[in-house]
């Protein structure tokens, strides 16, 4: 089988997975289904990254979104929905502001999509890139060191804040 054809087949399988599961996230009335459906969305996106040879990005996607954010969402949904037995309302609210916001976001994304030079300078031959991790590591502590440090300080603040909130609850 032609390798380009294979690439297309895999791409469409992943794209359908992402779109189908993302629509379940949005349209499902059952919030737990929506949360579990996110798993397939995240996996599909990670698969697309792998298909584009962005291995580091794909694994980071799994690590951060599936291992961190999804588990956090699931904990939130399960602990509030089942144990406290509060019904979580999933309905359509604020249609007009939401529509405006969605239209704006879509417009910006499409504008960026159209104005980006996709096949231009700065795109190296994929076969030449053997390993992405050392390059990303070098970039993080040389040219992007400020962003790296700012991100770590923000995370530290978040951890301290979380610890503060958790501790306050205990003393009451």
């Amino acid at each position: 089988m032609n390798s380009l054809q294979l690439f297309d087949i895999i791409f469409y399988i992943l794209a359908v997975t992402v779109l189908a599961s993302a629509s379940v996230v949005v349209f499902s009335r059952n919030i737990v289904y929506a949360a579990f459906s996110l798993l397939f969305t995240f996996f599909g996106v990670a698969g697309l990254y792998v298909l584009l040879n962005a291995d580091f990005l794909a694994i980071t996607q799994l690590m951060v979104y599936v291992g961190g954010i999804l588990v956090l969402i699931l904990f939130g949904v399960m602990l509030t929905n089942k144990v406290v037995s509060v019904d979580i309302k999933t309905g359509t609210l604020q249609v007009v502001p939401a529509a405006i916001l969605v239209a704006l976001t879509a417009g910006i994304l499409i504008a960026i999509f159209l104005s980006t030079n996709w096949i231009g300078a700065g795109v190296t031959n994929l076969a030449e890139v053997k390993s992405t991790a050392p390059k990303i590591g070098e970039a993080l502590i040389t040219s992007h060191v400020l962003l790296f440090e700012v991100a770590s300080v923000v995370l530290l603040v978040a951890i301290v804040g979380a610890a503060m909130i958790a501790r306050r609850e205990k003393t009451q």
Partner: peptide, 21 residues
């Protein structure tokens, strides 16, 4: 792959989601 160990740590998150499910 060059990121074998990183991949192992990341993909085990799926087990957590499965257990919660």
């Amino acid at each position: 792959v060059d990121l074998g160990l990183f991949y192992v740590i990341a993909v085990s998150a799926l087990v957590v989601v499965g257990i919660l499910m």
